[in-house]
Design a protein around this nucleic acid. Sequence first.
DNA 1: TATTAGCCTATCGGAATACTAGGATTAATT
DNA 2: AATTAATCCTAGTATTCCGATAGGCTAATA
Lengths: 136, 136
Amino acid sequence: MLSKKTKYGLKALTFLARQESKEPIQIAQISKSENISQKFLESILLSLRKTGILGSKKGKGGGYYLIKEPTDILMTDVIRVLEGPIAMVPCVSLNFYEKCDDCPDEATCCVNKLMIQVRDATLKIFRNTTLKDLCV
Amino acid sequence: MLSKKTKYGLKALTFLARQESKEPIQIAQISKSENISQKFLESILLSLRKTGILGSKKGKGGGYYLIKEPTDILMTDVIRVLEGPIAMVPCVSLNFYEKCDDCPDEATCCVNKLMIQVRDATLKIFRNTTLKDLCV
DNA sequence: TATTAGCCTATCGGAATACTAGGATTAATT
DNA sequence: AATTAATCCTAGTATTCCGATAGGCTAATA
């Protein structure tokens, strides 16, 4: 299940990508337009800034803005920041790999093989989708 | 993230599918072979029985067994019983649809469109995978 | 210097997850 | 009939995570 954090994050990013000018947009404005709790959104945007997807400006007239062009922002990056691993099981995660403690051997694990397929299919979509594609 | 319930359930089903005879297998045996807490496994197998994927025999010499051939047991059915919705968001779920309360219009929702793609890709895999495929 | 807006940490309630306990029930064996 | 072995079933618990909130701090602008 997709977390609200990810959902809200994607909505906020899309909102920013739809702006014509590149002036900073305030949290309050995004929060109202997209029906998102302002304080919660605040923490989401903060994490997007810390990972280099968003830029921010403090003080009066401040807000958040996209650092890169929407066509250059890949879903793989966004999802990994917001949701964490794309894989459904740590033992098939490319970026967040962890061995299962109950599994003696990954090579013969039925779950492992199935989840690799799912991971690859999902990755294929996220790698081929940019923020621009979400704006349509 | 895949729940342990689903993971254990898949392992147990695969274990049963690998058996040569169709005699009932006891929970204790599966639990030991697959490193799964017996009591937890008990509740998982129970739900698989209630949804018609497994059969059981009570009393001495009892246990669980597959009702259908492994080639006739689809991942779509197993996953839906164990994990619930395959979709990552209720608003794109085929079997567990729910409207989002924060979304005014699904047609223009950026998350919706993306998650439909993911759902379809995942469904395609689960529809083309049977329990037999997991046994290899 | 006053105001605005992001920065940051801490916390909290509720829901879901991952189990666990213990008795009831059923069936085979002795 | 008694014993044993297994599932059935309800309930409960411990822990973790999620979504959200509170409140002060810092930086930038007017």
